[in-house]
Design a protein around this nucleic acid. Structure first.
Length: 484
DNA sequence: TGAAATGTTGGGGCG
DNA sequence: ACGCCCCAACATTTC
């Protein structure tokens, strides 16, 4: 009687989970394990918000496994020796997992795979996270893509082939048990939750785990998907999928999402067409993983080396912390940063606006922003985060040119025209009339007084948009032409 | 998946 | 009727 081990990582679901499916299909009993080894992810170990999501996802996975007669084996320690010990104790001779694409994790997985195979253990890895794995598409010259449009022209052909696996027919799970000579762990004992209760709003906004993912997908398909192309840029509307953290943790797969859209299309053919703009966003996620795999150095270095000479400024601690905590005095920027701090998530349009402010007006290195997002986002994903920041900073693939500086006032007026989003997260502005809600500093002093913002940072922002924009463009010019 | 500066055009008021 | 100016509305260029 075989025992097959499934090593769960960022694939915390049971449906359309190829490693779990293969283990169930291989006969014998299935042992589901999570090994907590954050050090192995180096600089990019999960941050505080991610750990919150991870905690609840693990609980949810454990509960689902218990319903099926098993449970999640929770271990802690270096992955290789921990897995070796587990397999030796339980007599397991095959192990399955789903692939990850972060450079540090790939290096670890390669080594784990090699050593276990040398010991005679059957090891198989699978694709659970992507529609197109990074090596499955290339340019006609045989190179990786650096531009989104040709990448997606090629890769999107596979969208129609998305066939997620259902829950396996036959599941025979090993209940989790104490392992000799190993410290006992539960999800709780991993210490993933905050010690001070800053996660109140997180609980109100999110239900981490597979059940939550499926519920969120249903909600998206019932409502926002049909108006996605119109509302996705509107942070004042509930116009996005809000599936990003579920994707980041593998509570759901992109294949499942695409298949669900096509399934709805059987009843309502318009849905597929209206969802095209959303599927394109999934394409950006695929593109990010393609870039991360082929250019792993981009997690800390510019993809475009021409920017290596760019004169980023060392941020003043006060200004950086004002940006982080939403106290710059620029309404839509502060609203976004507070949304992030309070809920672990930020609307994508607003992410671009706050990132433009940091990298262009404040002229901070994009890594400063990437690290903050990494710690505070529940959907922190190394591929998306790296790509997103390099794109906005102008240092990345197919990037916004450096001189494309977002004006937060115009962006606010265009995408939050009534100021509802700004007022939700910046209550100081509650009484400011719509006309001035995105530039309250333009109100006359008497008006600032009567609307309750006199003497506040909203009467005099920490950043002069016009001046810093001009300075940033000057620095860009100077670095392009080199020192004289 | 910009914004601002600069250039062009065309309608309307006016002498 | 005509030229002139103003300026909104676009279009193009530049950063």
């Amino acid at each position: 009687m075989h025992t097959s081990t499934v090593w769960f990582r960022r694939d915390l679901r049971l449906i359309d989970n190829p490693a779990f499916h293969a283990a169930c299909a291989s006969g014998g009993s299935v042992q589901c394990v999570y090994v907590h080894a954050p050090d192995e992810e180096g600089q990019w170990r999960p941050g505080a918000a991610s750990n919150w999501w991870l905690h609840h996802s693990l609980l949810s996975l454990d509960a689902s496994l218990r319903v099926l007669g098993g449970g999640l084996w929770v271990l802690r320690g270096d992955s290789l020796p921990t897995l070796q010990h587990l397999l030796s104790v339980t007599g397991g001779d095959r192990i399955f997992w789903n692939r990850r694409y972060e450079p540090a994790v790939m290096a670890r997985d390669t080594r784990v795979k090699q050593v276990l195979r040398e010991q005679g253990i059957e090891v198989q890895s699978f694709n659970a996270a992507l529609i197109v794995e990074p090596w499955q598409v290339q340019t006609l010259q045989g190179n990786p893509y650096r531009v989104f449009t040709p990448f997606w022209r090629n890769a999107s052909a596979r969208v129609t082939q998305c066939l997620p696996q259902a829950l396996p027919d036959s599941i025979s799970l090993l209940a989790s048990a104490r392992i000799p000579d190993v410290e006992t762990h539960t999800v709780e004992s991993l210490g993933l939750l905050p010690t001070i209760p800053w996660d109140q709003d997180f609980k109100a906004h999110w239900q981490p785990g597979e059940d939550g993912a499926l519920a969120q997908l249903d909600e998206f398909l019932d409502a926002a998907v049909s108006r996605y192309s119109r509302d996705r840029d509107r942070p004042d509307c509930d116009g996005t999928s809000r599936l990003s953290p579920y994707l980041a943790w593998g509570n759901i797969s992109p294949r499942q999402i695409v298949a669900a859209i096509h399934a709805r299309g059987a009843d309502d053919p318009g849905v597929v067409e209206r969802a095209a703009a959303y599927i394109r966003e999934l394409g950006w996620r695929e593109f990010s993983h393609h870039l991360l795999y082929h250019f792993p150095y981009t997690v800390e270095k510019n993809l475009n080396a021409a920017f290596d000479a760019f004169p980023w400024l060392e941020p003043q601690a006060k200004l950086l912390s004002a940006w982080q905590r939403g106290k710059t005095g620029i309404p839509i920027v502060d609203a976004g940063m507070r949304e992030l701090w309070q809920t672990g998530w930020m609307h994508n349009r607003v992410r671009m606006i706050v990132a433009s402010l940091l990298t262009k007006n404040m002229r901070c290195h994009w890594l400063q922003g990437a690290r903050w997002f990494w710690d505070t986002l529940v959907d922190a994903d190394l591929a998306n985060n790296t790509q997103g920041w390099q794109w906005t900073a102008g240092t990345g693939a197919d990037a916004a040119p450096y001189f494309r500086v977002f004006n937060p006032v115009l962006q606010g007026e265009r995408f939050d025209p009534e100021g509802h989003y700004v007022k939700r997260y910046v209550p100081e502005l509650a009484r400011v009339p719509t006309k001035h809600v995105h530039q309250p500093w333009m109100l006359k002093p008497g008006e600032q007084e009567s609307y309750g913002i006199a003497g506040s940072v909203y009467a005099k922002p920490l950043i002069d948009l016009a001046q810093t924009r001009a300075e940033a463009l000057g620095a860009y010019q100077a670095s392009r032409h080199g020192p004289r």
